[in-house]
Amino acid sequence: MIKKLGLAVLATAAMGLSTAPAFAQEHVFKLHHFLGAKAPAQTKMLEPWARAVEENSGGKVKIEIYPSMTLGGRPPELINQVRDGVVDLVWTVNGYTPGLFPRTEVVELPNVYKNDPVATNLALFDMYEEHLSEEYRGVEPMFLHVHAGQAIHTVDKEVRNPEDMAGLKLRIPTRTGAWVIEALGASPVSMPVPDLPQSLSKKVVDGAFIPWEIIPALKIQDQTDYQIEGHDKTRFGTTTFQVSMNQNRWNSLPEDVQKAFRDASNREWAAEVGRIWRAIDEHGIGVATEAGNTHVTLTEEETAAFQQALEPVVQRWVDDMSGKGVDGEALVQTARDLIEQNTEGAGN
């Protein structure tokens, strides 16, 4: 059950707010998420987006950001919080609620997502209406995005080939990520990312599949020795996220306020979010190497061995979707084509 906080606690919990009084705005929204107020996801993405909406609205909108689950509950509860109207907006990981967004998983797959968050965000934007929208009943997505991709972080083992993964216990937030780990002969452990540092320090897990960007926020450099990725920043799949509003709240808004949100969440913003996550990923690996960690970049041959080992994950997803009456093979092809097209267009 979602913990109810007193008004005084809620007032002190809100982070990143302007000093303007809430009563000056006609429409006040609470945006709830699972990372800290200083995490780049808030400072580099959520705060600029919220300020853009407010500016677009001509002062009619105020978005209050509540980080670190300060409105109660645990990260996997975020999607139900927004669907039930407990909060107005959330930023959450789709994979925290397995099975709710299976079509969107297509861009998470290894060998579908490789190394380009800009192109992948644009592919999500282009696919949404025709291929993905029916999954988002009860919410109105503002935007979908991915991070820079799953890399391998290990406590004390250097990994160079799939065989090196055998027997390891590795954290992952999504079912597609779990399939990646299983295909490599390791054991997946699902948990929200805020739980990871303690699990690494106690050797509950031997490592994790996460991007570089989370390293500084959770001090992962203190719990691991190795950060491993493929040739040319190739990653082993990715994770999808959404910023979504309660559907009834959205439907109640006047057209000009809806437009303020839409204009701040357009196709160019999707590309910008990809650039933001690429930049903060580079910062994250810099923090790790400055702390003395080893950044391993696999050779082309080593990367190809991982890609070959992970191709069955794509087929496993296709087969799973076929069981749901969805043409997974066509979705994979659509995602690959759009990522390729948007890579060319993005100039990356």
Results as ranks from 00 to 15, higher is better:
residue 70 T to A: 13
residue 173 P to K: 04
residue 323 G to F: 10
residue 107 V to C: 03
residue 37 A to F: 04
residue 318 V to W: 03
residue 212 W to S: 11
residue 102 P to C: 02
residue 112 V to K: 00
residue 326 V to H: 10
residue 302 E to H: 00
residue 219 K to Y: 00
residue 41 A to L: 13
residue 134 E to L: 11
residue 251 N to A: 15
residue 317 W to A: 00
residue 268 E to W: 07
residue 53 V to F: 04
residue 290 E to L: 03
residue 57 S to A: 06
residue 142 M to T: 06
residue 207 G to F: 04
residue 332 V to Q: 11
residue 90 V to E: 10
residue 45 M to T: 14
residue 229 E to M: 08
residue 189 V to A: 04
residue 286 G to Q: 09
residue 146 V to G: 03
residue 296 V to W: 13
residue 154 T to M: 08
residue 107 V to I: 05
residue 24 A to L: 15
residue 164 D to W: 00
residue 214 I to G: 05
residue 265 S to T: 08
residue 281 D to C: 02
residue 265 S to Q: 06
residue 183 A to D: 03
residue 214 I to E: 13
residue 113 Y to Q: 04
residue 34 F to Q: 11
residue 12 T to L: 10
residue 345 G to A: 10
residue 330 A to T: 13
residue 220 I to C: 07
residue 91 W to N: 12
residue 324 K to L: 15
residue 261 F to H: 07
residue 6 G to I: 01
residue 68 S to A: 15
residue 29 F to D: 01
residue 139 V to Q: 06
residue 125 F to E: 15
residue 192 P to D: 06
residue 16 G to Y: 02
residue 79 I to S: 14
residue 136 Y to D: 08
residue 211 P to C: 02
residue 224 T to Y: 04
residue 82 V to E: 04
residue 110 P to R: 01
residue 217 A to R: 05
residue 165 M to V: 05
residue 50 A to N: 07
residue 335 A to F: 13
residue 38 K to C: 02
residue 3 K to L: 04
residue 28 V to K: 03
residue 19 T to S: 09
residue 102 P to W: 04
residue 2 I to H: 11
residue 97 T to W: 08
residue 174 T to E: 05
residue 191 M to V: 02
residue 235 R to W: 00
residue 185 G to Q: 05
residue 2 I to K: 02
residue 275 R to H: 14
residue 238 T to I: 01
residue 77 E to R: 07
residue 114 K to D: 11
residue 297 T to H: 05
residue 340 E to C: 05
residue 321 M to C: 08
residue 109 L to R: 02
residue 160 R to F: 09
residue 223 Q to N: 14
residue 267 R to M: 04
residue 333 Q to Y: 10
residue 315 Q to V: 03
residue 310 L to Y: 03
residue 155 V to T: 12
residue 133 S to G: 15
residue 13 A to H: 08
residue 201 S to L: 14
residue 269 W to P: 10
residue 154 T to C: 09
residue 70 T to F: 10
residue 266 N to G: 11
residue 4 K to I: 12
residue 189 V to P: 03
residue 334 T to C: 01
residue 121 N to I: 08
residue 206 D to E: 06
residue 160 R to K: 14
residue 38 K to L: 12
residue 64 E to Q: 12
residue 282 E to G: 09
residue 10 L to T: 06
residue 38 K to I: 12
residue 220 I to L: 13
residue 265 S to N: 14
residue 127 M to K: 00
residue 277 W to Q: 14
residue 96 Y to F: 14
residue 291 A to T: 07
residue 33 H to V: 06
residue 26 E to G: 07
residue 152 I to L: 10
residue 328 G to C: 06
residue 14 A to W: 06
residue 138 G to T: 12
residue 190 S to A: 11
residue 204 V to T: 13
residue 189 V to L: 07
residue 134 E to S: 15
residue 58 G to L: 07
residue 321 M to I: 02
residue 99 G to K: 14
residue 18 S to C: 01
residue 103 R to N: 15
residue 51 R to V: 11
residue 111 N to D: 08
residue 177 G to D: 04
residue 97 T to C: 09
residue 75 P to A: 07
residue 12 T to Y: 09
residue 216 P to G: 02
residue 247 Q to R: 15
residue 146 V to Q: 07
residue 204 V to W: 12
residue 335 A to L: 09
residue 263 D to C: 01
residue 165 M to K: 02
residue 150 Q to K: 10
residue 66 Y to A: 06
residue 188 P to F: 00
residue 188 P to Y: 01
residue 295 H to C: 04
residue 15 M to C: 07
